[in-house]
Structure formats: structure tokens, C-alpha cells
Amino acid sequence: MIQELTRLPGVGPKTAQRLAFFLLAQPIADVQSLAEALLRARQNTRQCGVCCNLTEEDPCPLCSDSRRDRDAICVVERPADVQAVERTRDFHGRYHVLHGVISPLEGVGPEDIRLAELLRRLGEGTCREVIVATNPSVEGEATAMYIARLVKPLGIRVTRLASGLPAGGDLEYADQVTLSRALQGRREL
């Protein structure tokens, strides 16, 4: 069991040992429900046929929710990013999960991420804006630019999340790149 647990991200041999002893001390019913939950989640989770997010139902609840706008798609790198944007409660459109970013140095090309699926969705014609919410890293930016190249010719608006100072942050401690981006992206008061 300790060996299996060490395979989890961020779990070293000592943590694995602690977790293992904790589990051994639990009532059998609790351990069983945990084991079943793990198994059920793994077996029933697949990618949504529309947005490629991880889901137990296909299409996923977000895609089948008729109250959500059909004219905006927010493109993110990973399923966890959908949760992050959802927490803001400011976006009411739909999502598309790429499951990665284009990274020439790592050998990840456009065909290795869910871009073809995005283009197919856009071909349906209901979407008027694609919001690219990939990370503000070199790979994330490259992916954003690549998406813009593909999508703009379709006559669809492509926007990119702004980047700048973190809320509640301190100007003095902001790094140069972030601060200069914040200056470039300043807005009228």
C-alpha cells in the first residue's frame, strides 16, 4: 500500500507511510467507501463529447445546461481551470478543455491537444467569441496565438484573459514582467 501511495503527486515515502497507517486504523466501512469512490470515479469519468472536460455524464452538466450562453467559449488548459473560472461566477458561457498546451520544446504539437474538437464546435456557428484562458506562460501564450490564427479567419472574436497585478497585492513586490504587462493593459478610470 505504501508503494502505491508514493505514486501520488506530492507524496513521498514518509507521507505515504503516514497515510497508510491512518487508513489501517480506520473502520473497514470507511476504507471500503473510499476505495469504491476511487474506483467509481475512475471507471465512470470520461471526456465530455462537446467540451472535453472530465465528466461522469456525456455531455457534461455544463454543456447540457440550457441557461448557459452559447455565444462564448472559454478555452482552458486543464479540467481544474474550469473549476477556477467557475468559482469567479462571472462567466456564463461554455468551456473547452485542451488537455495541454502547445510546447515545441516538449514535442507537444497542435495535434496532441483538443484543438480539432474546438474547431469542430466553432464550425456549428453558434459561438461569437472565444476567450483564451491558457496560462500566461510561454507555452500558454504560444497556444493562445495559435488558436487566434485558426479562429479569427472564421469571423469569430478571439480574446485573451488580461494579466496584471494580483488583487490585494503589493506594487513594490510585483515582478517586472507582471508590472509592465499591467501598465500596458491599464484602463481608463
Partner: peptide, 14 residues
């Protein structure tokens, strides 16, 4: 981490 002061400058190419 979002608040890291190192992250912005430690991107490839910098």
C-alpha cells in the same frame, strides 16, 4: 504560486 516574484522572470527566453 500566483504570488511568486520569481515566476515572471523565469520563463524560457528571459
Amino acid at each position: 504560486r500566483a504570488a511568486s516574484r520569481l515566476a515572471g522572470s523565469l520563463q524560457p527566453l528571459s
